[in-house]
């Protein structure tokens, strides 16, 4: 007979300061080629907006982390860089009067894939967005599949437009969104910027919705490039995610 347990095997909960070491270890595992998060950055995120930082715990081990903040619409909709709006990752610019939930970070233990850890984290964010009655969730990410199609499409903007029309097969689909979806491309930050590589490799190779409207107000609207930033891989030689 299968084991029965009364406690959860996998759960999403808000992070606490007791999780900081485990979160740093996770970030070191996910971002192999760069410095992991510092203790201070995680402490900053937890102090600025404790209800917006989530961990996924699988059998008492932290296997996922999502950092979130709230920003005013003017900042979210303007061309910006990750370092600028997150204050270099500290989330010190979290604005409790803002109207958009902003995704700072999602990382998932590469050895614990296929547990829907990322989905659980995004769901937690969505619940938070609804609880706080915000306009939606915004975040930047890299352009999956751009490397493969860079020659064909030329600019990242052209590739994004093509992705929206479902042209590139499989590799660059945008996640289906219940509400509207708007996306834009941001000129990449300096190559040396560690946060350029912040996003973890995604197992299924889907693009992230850049901006999902909870109310659906943006549904059916055409894409509005340059409305949203998108940390893409501008150099064709780089790997995609």
């Amino acid at each position: 007979m299968a084991e029965k347990r009364s406690t959860p095997k996998i759960e999403v909960r808000t992070a606490t300061t007791k999780d900081v070491n485990a979160i740093i270890a996770l970030s070191a595992k996910v971002f192999k080629d760069e410095a992991p998060y510092t203790r201070g950055m995680i402490m900053g995120q937890l102090s600025a907006f404790p209800e917006g930082q989530f961990v996924v715990v699988y059998e008492d081990e932290i296997v996922g982390y999502a950092a979130t903040m709230v920003l005013p619409e003017a900042k979210v909709m303007k061309q910006h860089s990750w370092a600028e709006v997150t204050g270099g990752g500290y989330a010190a610019m979290h604005d409790r009067k803002g109207d958009w939930l902003y995704g700072i970070e999602v990382c998932v233990d590469p050895d614990r894939r296929r547990l829907r850890i990322g989905k659980r984290l995004y769901d937690a964010r969505r619940r938070l967005c609804q609880d706080m009655d915000l306009k939606g969730i915004a975040f930047g990410g890299r352009l999956p599949g751009y490397k493969r199609h860079a020659k064909k499409y030329g600019t990242p903007e052209a590739y994004l437009e093509a992705v929206r029309k479902n042209e590139p097969h499989r590799s660059g689909r945008l996640l289906p969104s219940e509400g509207g979806l708007r996306a834009g491309v941001s000129p990449e930050e300096l190559l040396s910027d560690r946060h350029r590589l912040r996003r973890p490799r995604r197992p299924h190779g889907l693009a992230e919705p850049l901006l999902r409207s909870r109310t659906g107000q943006a549904a059916g609207q055409p894409l509005q490039p340059r409305h949203r930033t998108h940390r893409h891989r501008a150099d064709a030689g780089a790997q995609d995610v």
């Binding site: 760069e34 510092t38 201070g40 950055m41 910006h80 860089s81 270099g88 610019m93």
Partner: peptide, 17 residues
């Protein structure tokens, strides 16, 4: 504290913070 122009300036720490 909140009116900083992080689009113009920001301290970069050698530990990445």
């Amino acid at each position: 504290f909140r009116d900083r122009r992080l689009d113009l300036y920001r301290t970069k720490w050698s530990d990445g913070g």
